[in-house]
Design a protein around this nucleic acid. Structure first.
Lengths: 246, 246
DNA sequence: GCTCCCGCAAGAGCACTGCTCTCGTTTATG
DNA sequence: CATAAACGAGAGCAGTGCTCTTGCGGGAGC
């Protein structure tokens, strides 16, 4: 009975997926704030109360969408990561950053759902943790593989305060073994700063100032990669040996 | 009659201020998403329709709160800027970053109103532009005064793409004369990245990873300052000449 | 001083929302 | 076959933003 899953169960999965699809559509149209269960139900030709058989509340529906969105972003990022598996570390870094930004621009409301204002009484359940770290994890992969290839320098900036070093120590041994606390701190900061670049552009804060957004972002992402210790692309002399010629 | 403003007008201003105060209180309590006109009116002992004599819509009320919040943040930042008027440029930079973060932590919902998910159909009116640039403007002030004191190096990272240089050229002559496009681009990016650091922490994205938040932020802010060309604090040898010994 | 008018608060009402409960019906299982 | 679980539909509750009408009262003009 667990093999074929009763016809009812399959119908349930089908309806669940249909609801999520329609919800995603309405999310893309109007944003999370105006996503209404009733509208989704109306569009699906059912009555609002029927939706509660599938999602106990509106927030639960949003959680499901959040997980899906994290995974969609994660897929886009991983794809960029693997497509450039043999490329220069810096090029990989910029490629992953570009993939994240592009996904955000293509799905602004979903991005806002992930990294925008959290809904008031809502605490992200653990289900969102695993897919939520896929983007920062992709960044660490680049750095670790660059390190393994002997192409990772020390991160830019001053020495890491002891308190931060001790704070990040457990993470370095559990999650990303082989990475120095300095580099991990730099990657975490770069991740947050990457989100800042994307959010600031997407939420309209650059409106009066920056118009060459893609180029501006690329330049910023490149500097971000360099700040974590990735070398400039091989064979290219940028004319400005920032991290020294050592 | 324009001098004293008729008693009616004064009463109107009084009520307007009272409404905004109560709205701000409810905003701090429940967040922008659940800010309801009816609740504000109820708390004030009036009926909801009466509020529409003062604010034509809920979004207009939010706009008023946004302007106030931008100014509150701007005041906090300017205070930090002037208190360290004679300090080291890098210390000033970090001080301003700290002031922004502290204000955000103290007023999370107001910060979210400014830099979080924009409300769906809402376009920020021009009233919000001037107070909205006070934070990035404070950052440019630090950099410009450091430059005037001969203590500003070139920003870290590769050369600025021509497209970005031309894009930012008008800004450099109109808004921040005397700043090179390279530095302006670095400051704009640093601003967005600063928002990223604050938002990521405030919106709970660091939850499982970083616990020594203040120190982590300070370190990241310091690196940010260095990335725009500010020198490390005088008299301190950090032992790592990142931007070269030129 | 009197009247007229306009700003104001109140209330009813509309079209929504999330969510709960009940009521038959359908479906799967013992 | 019978029983229990799952299901869709509908009514209903409390709340929302917003509009419209009504009546009151103070300020302005005669």
């Amino acid at each position: 009975m667990t093999a074929i899953r009763t016809a009812r169960q399959r119908a349930r999965d089908e309806v669940t997926r249909t609801i999520k699809d329609e919800a995603r559509r309405r999310l893309a149209a109007d944003g999370a704030a105006k996503l209404s269960l009733r509208a989704v139900a109306r569009e699906l030709g059912m009555v609002s109360s029927a939706l509660y058989r599938y999602f106990p509340s509106r927030d639960e529906l949003l959680t499901a969408l959040i997980v899906d969105s994290y995974n969609a972003l994660g897929d886009a990022v991983d794809e960029a990561l693997e497509r450039r598996a043999d490329a220069d570390p810096c090029a990989r870094w910029v490629g992953v950053c570009h993939a994240a930004r592009r996904w955000a621009l293509a799905h602004p409301h979903e991005y806002a759902l992930l990294y925008g204002t959290p809904v008031p009484g809502y605490a992200a359940p653990d289900d969102t943790m695993v897919p939520g770290v896929r983007l920062p994890l992709a960044l660490t992969v680049i750095v670790r593989e660059a390190d393994r290839a002997g192409r990772l320098g020390p991160p830019e900036g001053g020495p890491l305060p002891d308190e931060v070093r001790e704070d990040l120590a457990p993470l370095t041994v559990e999650q990303v073994p082989g990475l120095s606390p300095e580099t991990l701190a730099a990657v975490l900061a770069a991740w947050a700063q990457l989100l800042g670049l994307v959010s600031t552009e997407l939420f309209g804060q650059f409106n009066g100032a920056v118009t060459a957004r893609e180029r501006f972002f690329e330049h910023a992402a490149t500097r971000l990669g360099r700040s974590v210790g990735l070398p400039p692309p091989t064979g290219e002399r940028t004319g400005e040996p920032t991290t020294g010629s050592d």
